[in-house]
Simulated scan of single mutants.
Amino acid sequence: MENKLSVKELGKVGVLFGGRSAEREVSIMSGSGVLAALISKGVDAHAFDPGQQSLAELAEQKFDRVFIALHGRYGEDGTLQGALEQLGIPYTGSGTLASSLAMDKAMTKRIWLASGLSTPKFAMLADDSDWAAIAADLELPLIVKPAHEGSTMGLTKVTDVAQLPAAYKLAARFDSAVIAEQFIEGMELTCAVLGRDENAQAFPLIRIVAPDANYDYQNKYFTDDTKYFCPAGIPDEQEQEISAMVLASYRALGCRGWGRADVMVRATDNKPFLLEMNTSPGMTSHSLVPMAAKVAGLDYAELCLEIIRSAELDLHASSDWKP
């Protein structure tokens, strides 16, 4: 990493976790792990829950930097990042715009497509959508999910056109924007990234094998039935191609600090498709970024240190601004 601050130079660190999103439970698990890891390294780290404490209280803490271990809305979507910019507190992960873009699955896809990157076909859904036309265009099975949620919240695999209205209603409980996406059958991979711009580096790919190919919320966080393979066990040339695609997708969105992209490789022709970018990935005992980092030679605590060292602001020159 470029910025090798000592533990002392990190100053007072806030670990932000909990929050108000549907992923609060997972965020608490992630943040608790990060907090313990940083303390074990001698960092002056303190817990802060934006779901129960106000921005005024955050300002009063006088943190020198913060580790964002929040997932989903109000933590991963650019809103908190904007508040931290106003407060002048450097934070981990992507900036305000990149966080907002990556949280919006439709905008992410539009940017990737404009950049020549492969991602499944999609359509936005509404109450009056022509379900038959959507099924004909995207083909069955297809995936319906909220456009601004993570951890497979509100997601349905639709195998019959008659299931579309109910799938839409479920996703709409989580978000006013709902997306239908072409289903890619094949190998599921994920790729973690650390760094920014041309210095961003991809960790070894992880291949995910979930029960009945159903990598849902329960199988992500609360069971040991899902199998993970890192190294992924694919040809080196294929791994390099997918890693390069992920790095291009990360840069296209303007991401920085760290992130994780999910990828499907179509069984019929081995073509990789980008699914989504996570700008505040999980850091639980089941999480994928620590798993890949370990294979790359970075243990959990060292990974947390590298991430907090990368904390920064978008508006580097804000203190020099004059009306």
Rank of each mutant, 00 (worst) to 15 (best):
M103H: 01
R20I: 07
L55P: 12
T223H: 11
V209H: 07
D262R: 03
I28H: 01
D175S: 11
E188D: 09
T79F: 02
E60K: 14
V158K: 02
Y74K: 05
A252N: 02
Q61C: 10
S30K: 07
G82C: 11
M245H: 04
T223Y: 05
W112E: 05
C304E: 07
Q81W: 01
A36S: 15
V13C: 00
P141W: 06
L84P: 12
A293Y: 11
K157D: 01
D130I: 02
A166N: 04
V43M: 06
L140A: 04
S118P: 03
D104Q: 01
Y91N: 05
V246L: 08
A311D: 11
G19A: 09
F229Y: 10
Y250E: 11
E9G: 13
L80E: 04
K62S: 06
A126H: 15
R173P: 00
E241D: 14
Q163F: 10
H148E: 03
R20G: 00
L288S: 10
V161M: 08
P141V: 01
Q218T: 14
I234P: 08
Y300F: 15
L113Q: 14
A261C: 13
A136Y: 06
T79V: 11
P204K: 00
P146G: 12
L253H: 01
H316Q: 14
E198F: 14
E198C: 12
M107V: 06
S21F: 07
V178Y: 09
L253C: 09
M264P: 02
A172K: 15
M187K: 13
R65T: 06
T268S: 15
G93C: 07
V13G: 02
S310K: 10
D236H: 14
F229W: 08
P290H: 09
L164M: 04
L84H: 06
A162Q: 12
T152S: 15
I111E: 04
L275Q: 06
I308F: 02
E276F: 05
V295D: 01
